[in-house]
């Protein structure tokens, strides 16, 4: 087995041994969406959204919430603790390359995000009657690059923060921006237009996710239909953020 595979497996086991991260990151989006769906007005078509339903509009934001926890709370926290406890210092005396440790964290985070995402999509479909993504490939692409970008930002913070306090501070700042742009705190249709447009281009790109998920005219009217080229620009921006942040994380990684 390769070093990367083994490191990833060990880190995956360690992730599962931290019940808070697993529960908050993986299960909470589904639980919150179900809780909101239990309120009749939120799961019924509304005039306000041109006949679309709140749960349908908010489902991608539930994903942002969970993935934000994994990418921007869990990963920077874990690596900052490793740095403080000398785990990284110990590793730096071995032949292993730091990029493998970062990649392992990224892979574990991505796997947790995929599980969290699948849970939300399937639960929304089975319980709340939200249709499965209409454009599955576009949805997967938007999901991959969007959350890849958030994960890469989290890994970048983890790579450079000298202490868990700094890591926590930086991560919380980015977390707030991502949550806000992702419409977690304030549903996007209540936000000023300029902020919404900014949010379209801020990782993880909720608009792209939503328009790939739903064809409902009400949804499209509320979030704004996208032309194919806008969609491509958004995907390219997310991919760019993911690559730049990921490369910077690998380059700037500090053992101590």
């Amino acid at each position: 087995m390769s070093t990367l595979m083994r490191t990833t497996l060990v880190e995956a086991r360690l992730f599962l041994r931290e019940p808070t991260a697993a529960i908050l990151g993986v299960l909470s989006p589904t639980l919150i969406l179900l809780a909101l769906g239990a309120i009749p007005t939120l799961r019924e078509p509304s005039e306000e959204y041109d006949g679309a339903r709140f749960v349908e509009l908010w489902a991608p934001s539930a994903l942002v919430l969970g993935i934000g926890v994994i990418a921007l709370q869990h990963i920077p926290g874990v690596l900052a603790t490793y740095r403080e406890h000398g785990v990284l210092r110990r590793l730096s005396t071995t032949p292993v390359h730091p990029v493998k440790l970062l990649l392992a964290q990224l892979l574990v985070g991505l796997a947790a995000c995929v599980v969290a995402g699948a849970l939300v999509v399937v639960t929304a479909w089975l319980v709340l009657d939200v249709p499965l993504p209409r454009h599955p490939w576009t949805f997967l692409a938007a999901f991959g690059v969007g959350f890849g970008a958030v994960l890469a930002l989290g890994t970048l913070i983890a790579a450079v923060a000298p202490s868990s306090r700094v890591a926590g501070g930086l991560a919380t700042l980015v977390y707030m921006v991502v949550m806000f742009a992702g419409g977690v705190f304030l549903p996007r249709f209540l936000m000023p237009d300029a902020l919404v447009r900014m949010g379209d281009y801020t990782p993880p790109g909720v608009q792209g996710l939503l328009t790939a998920w739903s064809d409902h005219p009400g949804v499209l009217a509320t979030v704004g239909a996208q032309s194919g080229s806008t969609r491509l620009v958004q995907l390219a921006i997310m991919a760019g953020v993911a690559i730049v942040a990921g490369a910077a994380a690998a380059k700037l990684f500090r053992w101590e």
Partner: peptide
């Protein structure tokens, strides 16, 4: 090294198997 710990929840055999894979 002095003052370097391992991951709190890693088991003894996991740590040894992991480190041996580096060499």
């Amino acid at each position: 090294l002095q003052q370097s710990r391992l991951q709190e929840k890693i088991t003894v055999s996991e740590a040894l198997a992991l480190y041996s894979s580096y060499y």
